[in-house]
Design a protein around this nucleic acid. Sequence first.
DNA 1: GTTTGTGAATTCCTTCACAGCT
DNA 2: AGCTGTGAAGGAATTCACAAAC
Lengths: 209, 209
Amino acid sequence: MEEFAAIPEVVILRLPRYVRVLKQLIQEQVSTVSSERLGQRLNISAAQIRKDLSYFGRFGKQGQGYKVEGLLNELNRILGLDRQWNVCLVGVGRLGRAIIGYPGFAPEGFQITAAFDITPGIVGQSVGRLQVQAMDELARTIKSKAVRIAIVAVPAEHAQDVIDRLVECGVRSILNYAPITAQVPSGVWVRNIDPVTFLQSMTYYLREE
Amino acid sequence: MEEFAAIPEVVILRLPRYVRVLKQLIQEQVSTVSSERLGQRLNISAAQIRKDLSYFGRFGKQGQGYKVEGLLNELNRILGLDRQWNVCLVGVGRLGRAIIGYPGFAPEGFQITAAFDITPGIVGQSVGRLQVQAMDELARTIKSKAVRIAIVAVPAEHAQDVIDRLVECGVRSILNYAPITAQVPSGVWVRNIDPVTFLQSMTYYLREE
DNA sequence: GTTTGTGAATTCCTTCACAGCT
DNA sequence: AGCTGTGAAGGAATTCACAAAC
């Protein structure tokens, strides 16, 4: 266990995938798993998985592998998934509504607790169990609900401004659906969800057929 | 220009981002750009951009940089974006409907031309300008519309089966919204869109606060 | 003076391979 | 015998740095 070296971001990005498979294995009543079998499910080499886990501790037993539930608990703890996270959403257009309606966040501990929009016609509307708030309530709500994570679903031209405001209000992690590369200060993390660039990169391999 | 070495996938994944910024620059009436300025917009080093582009040719001029429009055309050609792509969607639930309604695909040349579902109550419905088709029409439609790209928006438990069928029907690129690691034969590309794992990786950095 | 294109150097990531534990 | 954890090796990606072109 290397306590002091920074852990590569690629490693952190893989951990949630381990979490997901471990949950599947629990469903399947599997109580023990080897790095080999875990890797097969994820198309990741066994050595890679062992190396990744070794950044955080020694969770396996030679000759047996890993206890599924034990490893899951460790990973949940490491990733900070052993608690609830309040998330706010900015942008309640078509996409924002789909995000509010998406049932996949809550079971993983991410509760969308506030939604904001700039459009007068949208502010005040009820969407799901949320009432859309005006942007000038951003700071107060983020503080009162201890929000550290935001989802941005506004048009590209407003995304950087919105992100600036979120960062000012203390948000540290942003899931950005707008097709821009946001500029944020260090200490703030942004992940982009961008189906179009994914499609655009895959066409490279289809080019000549 | 290295004609024979395989081009790293990370490079291919960056090219669409260059395309996006170049389009922005055209909007802003900028006709010439240096790797330095391009990099600032994308948080990518100038050297990286030059190296990436050098895999494909020599598009710049020393002392001046790159012609925005010229470089954009080259990248569009390289990525196969100088044409229309027919895309099919499988899974017309809440998420699938949001995807059909998403206005970002068509302007980039991706036309959703067919939608499929397994649920009797959904098959036959009109969604947007599409009529939802039954799964047994998959093969015929994919052939007749020359579909090479599919979007999968079915529940996790059906995703692998759906992907298997798509691959059988000749689909080579899959944008997968289901939270699974799909197993596909070589020659088929899958990209996953997974907001939850993104959130789960960001909480690592928020853990102790 | 400015900026590209690119080998060389460096850094980062993955895989190897095996000692050591079960 | 089976599998982990990990240094060492190998491979990949990024950055450096500069000659050449404008």
